[in-house]
Every structure is written in structure tokens, then in C-alpha cells.
């Protein structure tokens, strides 16, 4: 099912919930598009918006940040900060013409393996539906 047309998506997953959720999706052998690269971070609040900007500017097709559901953060409040930042960042990206589909924040708990697979499938589809891929980093 892998095809070169599939967009490459960078996924930041929090160590305590979402990464475990991704793991569960894997051990459950759920099907999902293979063109995503998961980076484990200790908390979704670890994801500096600069990471997202840099990734999108270097030719990745999308960036997804996954964190614990509000109220469930291992550090009590990390994901509340993430929520504020993500909304602002999305507005900024959209303002310069980067489609909102390319940067998304989702809450995935350790038990939500199926939601992880579904989220990746859904977002891959959304990004694929946009006109064309991100332009690759420039040639010299």
C-alpha cells in the first residue's frame, strides 16, 4: 500500500500517552500509511514551534503533534501550553499560505492505538488531497 505519492509526515508523540498509543497501534498490527516518521518527545510541550516551522520549510509535507488528553498530562499541565501555542502557530502558518491540514494537534492516550492509526490515515489523506506536495528544498 506504500506509494511514493504518499506525503511524508513528521509526528511528535509524547512519551507517556501518544507514543504508547502508537506502539499499541503497531503491536496490534493496525494498517496505516507508512510515510510517517515518529519522534518521541517527553511531552507535547517539548515541541518548540520552531521545530514545526523548520520541518515544513525543509520540505516535509506535514507535522502532527500528539499529546495526552487535557487533564491527563504526565506533568499536569504541559499539554495546556501546547494547546495555546498550537492554535496560534496554526493561525500564523495559515496566514503565510501553509494550509492548516499540514500542522495538526491531536490528543491520543496510551490505550488509543486505533485512534493513532485512524489519525495518521486521516491526516495523510487530507494532506494528499491538497494541491501538490510541498516543494522540495532548493537546488543549488
Amino acid at each position: 500500500m506504500a506509494s511514493d505519492d504518499d506525503p511524508t509526515i513528521l509526528v511528535f508523540a509524547c512519551n507517556w500517552c501518544s507514543y504508547a498509543g502508537a506502539d499499541l497501534a503497531g503491536v496490534s498490527r493496525l494498517e496505516m500509511p507508512p510515510h510517517c516518521r515518529v519522534v518521541r518527545v517527553m511531552c507535547s510541550a517539548r515541541v518548540r514551534p520552531e521545530f514545526v516551522i523548520a520541518a515544513l520549510s525543509r520540505g516535509l509535507d506535514g507535522v502532527v503533534v500528539l499529546g495526552c488528553h487535557p487533564g491527563d498530562c504526565h506533568y499536569s499541565e504541559g499539554n495546556y501550553y501546547t494547546r495555546r501555542r498550537a492554535l496560534l502557530l496554526k493561525e500564523l502558518l495559515e496566514h503565510v499560505g501553509i494550509e492548516p491540514e499540514r500542522f495538526q494537534l491531536r490528543w491520543i492516550s496510551a490505550s488509543e492505538g486505533a485512534k493513532f492509526a485512524q489519525t495518521i490515515t486521516e491526516i495523510t489523506g487530507e494532506i494528499k488531497a491538497l494541491d501538490g506536495r510541498r516543494e522540495p528544498p532548493p537546488e543549488g
Binding site: G71, Y80, A86
Partner: peptide, 22 residues
């Protein structure tokens, strides 16, 4: 400053939440 604080319920954000979180 807005990014060093938060509220558990953020009504101003929730109107746009469907776009940013699910």
C-alpha cells in the same frame, strides 16, 4: 504573557478547537 499561562477551560479557544484538536 499569553504563552506562559493557561486555563483548564479556554472558552475563547474552544470556538476554534475543532480546527486544532480532536
Amino acid at each position: 504573557p499569553p504563552l506562559v499561562t493557561f486555563a483548564a477551560e479556554e472558552p475563547a479557544l474552544s470556538s476554534r478547537q475543532d480546527r486544532s484538536e480532536r
